[in-house]
Nucleic acid binder design. Structure first.
Lengths: 107, 107
DNA sequence: GCCTACATATAGACAGCCTACATATAGACT
DNA sequence: AGTCTATATGTAGGCTGTCTATATGTAGGC
C-alpha cells in the first residue's frame, strides 16, 4: 500500500474503527489490519499523532487507563466525531465515484 | 474535493486520461472535469509539474506543437506509461477494497 | 482598450504520512 | 539471569506532492 494514497483518508479510517467501541492506539492498528485483511499496516508514527490531532479537533476523547503495569490511552468518538464520520463516508463515496469515472470510463 | 485525498492518485488520473489519445495540459484538465462530471477541478499548478514529473520518469513523452500563435505541449503515453497505468488501476482496486472494508464493514 | 478564454510555468507554503528512534512492561523460553 | 517477542505510547525530522499565487503571452469578442 503506497503511503501517499492513504493521505486524507486516515481520519475516516480512525473514526470508523472507533464507531462501535472505544479502543486504544495499539488495538486500533490491529483492528485496521484485521478489517482490511492485512492490507493496512499503519505505523505507530502515523497513528499516535493522528489520534492526538483528532482529539484536539474535538472528534475524539482520550482517557488514560491501566491494565496491570501497562498504560493505555483509550479513545472514543464524540458526538462531533460521529458527525464527522458521516461526512467522511459521504466524501469517500464521492471520491471513489470521481476517480473511478476517470480510471474506468464507461465505454 | 479535498486536496489531500487526491494525493498519490494524480498519476493514475493523468495516465488514464491520456490512454486513448495524446492531449496537452489544458485539455487534460478539461477532460478530467468532464469525465468526473465536474467533481475534479485540478489547478494548473498541480497538473503541469505532475506532467513534467511523469515525463522525467519516462511514463509520458511531451512534444511542443503550435496552433496558430499558441504553443502547446502535447503528451502521449509511452510503453512504460501504459504498463504503469495497468499497475495504477490494480493499485486503485486494492486501495478502495482495503479502505472500503474498514469504512463499510458488515457487507 | 478591456475582458474572457486559452495555454504554460514557477516559487513558496503547507499538511500529513513516513522512518527512525526512545521508553517501558509482561510473559515465554533458554 | 538473560534474551526475545509482543504489547504500548510517543517524538523529531524528513519527504513529497498537493495547493495558492503569480507571471507571461496569444486569440477573439465587445
Amino acid at each position: 500500500m503506497n503511503a501517499d494514497a492513504l493521505r486524507g483518508h486516515m481520519d475516516a479510517l480512525l473514526l470508523s474503527v472507533l464507531e462501535r467501541e472505544p479502543l486504544h492506539g495499539y488495538a486500533i492498528i490491529e483492528a485496521l489490519r484485521e478489517r482490511s485483511g492485512g492490507a493496512l499496516d499503519v505505523p505507530t508514527g502515523t497513528v499516535y499523532p493522528a489520534l492526538r490531532r483528532l482529539e484536539r479537533a474535538g472528534l475524539l476523547a482520550g482517557e488514560w487507563a491501566s491494565d496491570g503495569g501497562r498504560k493505555r490511552r483509550t479513545y472514543r468518538l464524540t458526538d462531533a466525531g460521529r458527525e464527522a464520520l458521516a461526512g467522511e463516508r459521504s466524501a469517500w463515496r464521492s471520491f471513489t465515484t470521481a476517480i473511478g469515472s476517470v480510471l474506468d470510463p464507461l465505454r
